[in-house]
Amino acid sequence: MSSRFNLWDALQQSFGETFYMVFLSLAISVVIGTLLGYLLYATSNKYLVFNKPINAVLGFVVNCVRSLPFIILLVVLLPLSKIVVGTQVGPTAVIVPLSISSSAFFARLAESAFNAVNKGVVEYAISTGATNRRILFSIMLPEASSQLLRSITVATIALFGSSAMAGTIGGGGIGDLAIRYGYQRYQTDILLICVAILIVIVQVVQFIGDHISRKVDKS
């Protein structure tokens, strides 16, 4: 059947698009989210850069982004995509809202990972005369690394979910494929294949994430 050949092609393309969206957004949001999370943490810690107003403003902005369901955020932020990446359609356009949504999510995950670091160790670091920068890179990141890696796993899986929604506005990817063929054309076999592949991907991501975070954990 010629449709089988087409299906294989379509699957390959969709997965390429999904991985492109997920991992580029992940990379961006881990960097931004970690920094935001550290700022949230450090502005509420009396030994670091204790600053209630900045903490409140940051927290408010993060909460605003997190209050919107992704599909709405997607629509709201598409004009921004046009400005940043020059297009409103396709995987690249979707990376803008995906990164913003995921950064806010990861900021909260990172904040709680930093909060879980023994406060005594932070107090010790301050007592040596270390700068804030050194405390972030030499103490907080290594001490929180195991928890941060678990957070990256969670964020990755969440991104697979939101990237599928992006398909509905022409973002492409596996979600787009499943909806166009499986839902709108009643091709249940394609829907089931997509479901099976997504389940395998999430299991693999979770397995790898758990494995690495256990390896890193020295406590």
Binding site: N118, G120, V121, E123, Y124, I126, S127, G129, P142, S219
Partner: peptide, 16 residues
């Protein structure tokens, strides 16, 4: 602070 050392009840070593 660099010349004032400090030790703690629960040691507070850097676990990583």
């Amino acid at each position: 602070r660099g010349h004032i050392g400090m030790i703690f009840q629960h040691f507070n070593l850097i676990t990583s």
